[in-house]
């Protein structure tokens, strides 16, 4: 059964039309990559799913139920959890408090905070540090931990490696590959195509807010033309 279905979805910021008749299908326990250049509409796609864009139209279903008119908190409480691009750690709260807030608000069966500290030992040493004092990598770990503690049905990862040092990216990869091995469904957007494809089974390419291609990662790996055309791999960074 499909966990998530987007059909003919359009999204807008004010007068700007960002997504054009976008389709997306995600199955149970699948990891799906959303690829595309900067500004292609990947983040807007995730925001459309979580309800944080100002206006959206079209069919958006989660576990067969229409969520297109739901509020952000209601969608979250259905089990859809976003790890946003900007991490959005609560700056004045400590690491532990950031996780406690997530745990308190969890609608399902939240995990224990200690469990998260076992998964992210780097956070264990920073328990009482305030969010604003964490490095970018630490904030990213905490942002992922904060989503995982709520035991998501669908985890949306928006550019998780952005701005991170290579060694941190490796750590994050280890953690996420453990996460995706469990029964969680994931949609991941990445500029770092290799990172995303290593984790994913299927991929969508988005270009100018519309579907450009969809298929398995194996298929995509055979199609260097697609990577060249839409993702500028190896070429000059288009942005």
């Amino acid at each position: 059964m499909s966990v998530l279905t987007l059909e003919d979805v359009n999204s807008y910021y004010g007068n700007s039309h960002i997504l054009f008749d976008l389709d997306l299908e995600v199955e149970q326990n699948e990891v799906v990559a959303l690829l595309g250049r900067n500004g292609a509409g990947k983040t807007t796609t995730l925001r459309t799913i979580t309800g944080t864009v100002p206006r959206r139209e079209g069919r958006i279903e989660f576990r067969g139920e229409d969520i297109a008119d739901d509020s952000v908190d209601k969608i979250s409480n259905r089990g859809v959890k976003l790890v946003p691009e900007e991490r959005r750690i609560f700056p004045t709260l400590t690491v532990t408090e950031n996780m406690q807030v997530a745990r308190d608000m969890s609608s399902g069966n939240p995990r224990d905070i200690q469990e998260m500290y076992d998964v992210f030992p780097v956070l264990d040493e920073l328990r009482e540090n305030r969010g604003r004092n964490l490095s970018g990598g630490e904030q990213q770990m905490l942002s992922v931990a904060r989503a995982l503690i709520q035991d998501p049905d669908l985890l949306l990862l928006d550019e998780p490696t952005e701005g991170l040092a290579p060694v941190i990216v490796d750590d994050l990869y280890d953690v996420l590959s453990e996460v995706v091995a469990e029964d969680v469904t994931v949609v991941i957007t990445e500029q770092n195509v290799d990172f995303a494809l290593e984790l994913s089974e299927r991929a969508y390419i988005i270009e100018k807010g519309a579907n450009a291609w969809g298929g398995t990662v194996d298929e995509l790996n055979e199609r260097e033309d697609l990577l060249d055309e839409y993702l500028s791999v190896g070429g000059a960074e288009a942005d």
Binding site: T52, V72, D73, R88, T92, L93, E97, Q100, V101, D104
Partner: peptide, 21 residues
């Protein structure tokens, strides 16, 4: 209180975690 502090610093993220802001 923790929820109020979190929401006051970032209401959009609080909503993403399920807070009825």
């Amino acid at each position: 209180g923790r929820l109020v502090r979190a929401t006051s610093s970032d209401r959009d993220m609080a909503a993403l975690l399920g807070v009825n802001v």
